[in-house]
């Protein structure tokens, strides 16, 4: 308790504390070091190479699709840079939703256990450093790095797109891209957290990496199948019973939306495709025919995906809390 109060006091911004003083608190020192370690590591270079390739591929496929005239109407031509594909390669959004978990897992999977195995954890912990600061620093440094990567990629696609199609984005389109990049960062943050949890839990880096990848593949491949299976098993017997069918579909939707990958897909595609008016599978005939067929404004799109964003953040917080609890209760011995 005392330690907690002392910590609160330290966290309080003192008026006389200069910027330099604050930046040298152990927490920021650790963040700085982690960030430096990530940037210098081979793993990061490899990741960057993969992601850059994916990005170039998606630009290529989008540009050829636009040139072939697949774009249809040109109202949000710039956004179609991110969502359109000529069929040969996936578009940017698909690439991102596919690679984002990989980035998160790759950055976090050996965060804690490698320090434990190298014997540096007990050394750092015997310094006047809070245990939670150690975990927070790992997370913040990873998230910063992810933000840098995701945003630089997004801007790269924007820049190259501008250069090749010569069609500037409207401010709304710009903000839509920024918002979806932000959501991507949050989504990668979730995977980073999950892999940090595994790195706290498992002593071997390989085990924790595999667990992370297993969960990724589970949500990518199997989860949808399982939900479908459950869906067909619980299908109401009477096809005329509208209420029962609606209720069952709602349940299926809820199940589907447990998967962070699905949430991200919904959130990002709604933001990048302004024509998406609802995320519900069912609309009434009145809604379908009477609504004016016009894209949503940015604010409305954001409002539409807000629950998805909150759900992703909630899942992130949940896995962070789990790693927190696991780490706080662990005994720190050297190399064991």
């Amino acid at each position: 308790m005392n330690a907690f109060i002392e910590k609160l006091r330290l966290r309080m911004p003192r008026p006389e504390a200069s910027r330099a003083e604050r930046s040298s608190s152990p927490f920021w020192v650790m963040v700085q070091k982690e960030f430096g370690d990530h940037i210098r590591s081979w793993r990061f270079i490899i990741l960057l190479a993969i992601v850059t390739l994916a990005c170039i591929g998606s630009i290529y496929t989008a540009v050829t699709a636009i040139k072939e005239g697949q774009a249809g109407d040109t109202s949000f031509l710039f956004l179609q840079m991110f969502t359109i594909s000529n069929g040969a390669l996936p578009n940017f959004l698909t690439f991102l939703s596919f690679l984002a978990p990989l980035i998160g897992i790759a950055i976090g999977f050996d965060g804690v256990n490698s320090e434990r195995n190298k014997g540096t954890l007990s050394r750092v912990m015997s310094q006047p450093v809070y245990r939670d600061d150690f975990l927070n620093a790992k997370f913040v440094a990873g998230l910063l790095l992810i933000a840098v990567v995701v945003f630089s990629l997004g801007f790269l696609v924007m820049g190259v797109g501008l250069f090749t199609i010569g069609y500037p984005p409207t401010p709304e389109e710009f903000w839509r891209v920024i918002a979806s990049l932000l959501i991507t960062v949050i989504y990668v943050g979730l995977w980073l957290n999950l892999s940090l949890l595994f790195s706290v839990r498992f002593r071997q880096a390989a085990t924790s990496a595999l667990s992370g990848i297993a969960i990724w593949i589970f949500f990518l491949v199997f989860y949808g199948m399982i939900v479908n299976l459950v869906g067909s098993a619980t299908m109401p017997s009477n096809p005329m019973n509208t209420d029962a069918i609606l209720r069952q579909q709602d349940w299926m939707m809820l199940l589907e939306r447990i998967s962070p990958a699905y949430l991200f897909q919904e959130a990002a595609s709604t933001l990048l495709l302004p024509d998406t008016r609802t995320l519900n599978p069912f609309i009434t005939q009145d809604q379908a025919y009477l609504a004016i067929d016009a894209p949503l404004s940015f604010g409305q799109s954001l409002l539409l995906v807000w629950p998805q964003v909150v759900a992703i953040i909630a899942e992130t917080v949940l896995s962070f809390a789990a790693s927190y609890v696991a780490f706080m209760r662990q005994e720190i011995r050297s190399r064991s």
């Binding site: 190298k118 014997g119 050394r123 006047p128 050297s334």
Partner: peptide, 17 residues
């Protein structure tokens, strides 16, 4: 925290980055 400020500890098989 206060103890760790005053005490230097070298674990057995100390590790470095």
């Amino acid at each position: 925290m206060q103890v760790k400020r005053r005490v230097g500890y070298m674990p057995d098989d100390v590790g470095f980055y």
